[in-house]
Computed example of a mutant assay.
Amino acid sequence: MPEGVTLLTGAGGFIGAHLVRRLLDESGPNDAARGDGGRVHVIVRPSTELGRLSPFAERLTIHRIDLADRLEIQRCIRALRPRRVFHLAAETRLPPHPDFSAARGAGAIYLQPALNLLEPLAELAEPPEAVVRAGTIAEYGHAPLPYREQDRAVPSTPYGAGMLATTEAIAMLAPRLPFPVVTARLALCYGPGQAASFLIPALIQACIDRQPMVIRRPADRRDLLHVDDAVDALLHIARLAAKTSNDSARKLDCVNVCTGLAPTMDEVARRIEALTGCPEGFLARAALSDDGKAAAPATLLSSPDLAAERLGWRYRIDLDEGLARTVADEQLMCTKAG
């Protein structure tokens, strides 16, 4: 890890907490005792629950700041002078249906916080070596499959549109920034510690508890990425961007972080049933959508080619291994709770 402070936003989230753990592993167990609060600093909203960070909260410095507070963010950045920054803060659970209200709110939710972070970083006498931002496969929407970075994205949800608007605004500002900003468009991540409101942890919990559950869209296909691979990619991008000249790094302002595979949710369910000892078909599969019509399968699938060619990065944890790890972790948590 480079000397100086590493700053992370969104640390209280699923991916953010896993990244914090890895950053602290890089820092070493005695880093927080150096007298300056340690090298790993995180920004979380004042209302953020810190349950995911509690196992290692004493080893990092937590700043409770709303990214909408431009002046407070500016003061924080000027005091810390971070050497590298990971921007993961983003609201992921917006209503999926597009409307004017959601479109108006996207700027305040996604774009303004990113600008509030980047502007004071650009004003530092010694700016950071690199900023890595977590983007999303949802930015592509109705773009041709598999999603490729050079293709025009056609977002279909307020979340995807807001994140894409931020990606494009950063690309517009790139020539004015004294550091590279790379957006990692993450596939759908899963793994230990994910909220039960997401599909994979919900399926695992239902099987462990032997509680009935219906998979609403079993034929949908999703590019699924284990959280450890996502964290590896974010760290890898930061290292490469810091070693690369600005002109070269800016040529890669956005890159897919994905597997390039898209199993159906039915296939995922069958794997989880087997891992938890449930009979095949324990999880019910819906044949119709909520409105009583046959649900047309939807696919989210990104191409991993650019990451392999330009970054030398590929995922390492296949779906069988990733689900096995996640199920084992959840079973262990249930055992401890019992």
Score class of each variant (00 low, 15 high):
213 M>R: 12
213 M>D: 12
214 V>E: 11
214 V>C: 14
214 V>L: 13
214 V>R: 14
214 V>P: 01
216 R>N: 12
219 A>M: 02
219 A>L: 12
219 A>G: 03
220 D>G: 06
221 R>C: 04
222 R>E: 05
223 D>R: 09
226 H>I: 06
228 D>F: 01
228 D>W: 00
228 D>H: 04
230 A>P: 01
233 A>V: 05
234 L>K: 01
236 H>C: 05
237 I>D: 02
237 I>K: 00
238 A>W: 09
238 A>L: 14
239 R>V: 04
241 A>Q: 14
242 A>H: 04
243 K>C: 10
245 S>F: 03
245 S>Q: 12
245 S>G: 15
247 D>W: 12
249 A>Q: 14
249 A>P: 07
252 L>N: 00
254 C>H: 10
256 N>D: 11
256 N>R: 06
259 T>A: 11
259 T>G: 07
261 L>C: 06
263 P>Y: 07
266 D>I: 07
266 D>H: 15
268 V>H: 02
270 R>N: 09
271 R>D: 06
271 R>N: 05
272 I>T: 03
273 E>W: 10
274 A>S: 09
277 G>F: 07
279 P>D: 07
283 L>P: 03
283 L>K: 02
285 R>Y: 06
285 R>Q: 09
285 R>K: 14
288 L>Q: 13
288 L>F: 15
289 S>C: 13
290 D>R: 13
291 D>A: 15
293 K>R: 15
293 K>V: 04
294 A>S: 12
295 A>L: 05
299 T>G: 00
304 P>M: 08
308 A>L: 06
308 A>N: 10
308 A>W: 05
311 L>Q: 09
312 G>M: 03
313 W>D: 01
314 R>K: 07
317 I>Y: 05
318 D>T: 08
321 E>W: 04
323 L>K: 11
325 R>D: 12
325 R>T: 14
325 R>C: 13
326 T>C: 03
326 T>S: 11
326 T>F: 13
329 D>L: 08
329 D>N: 14
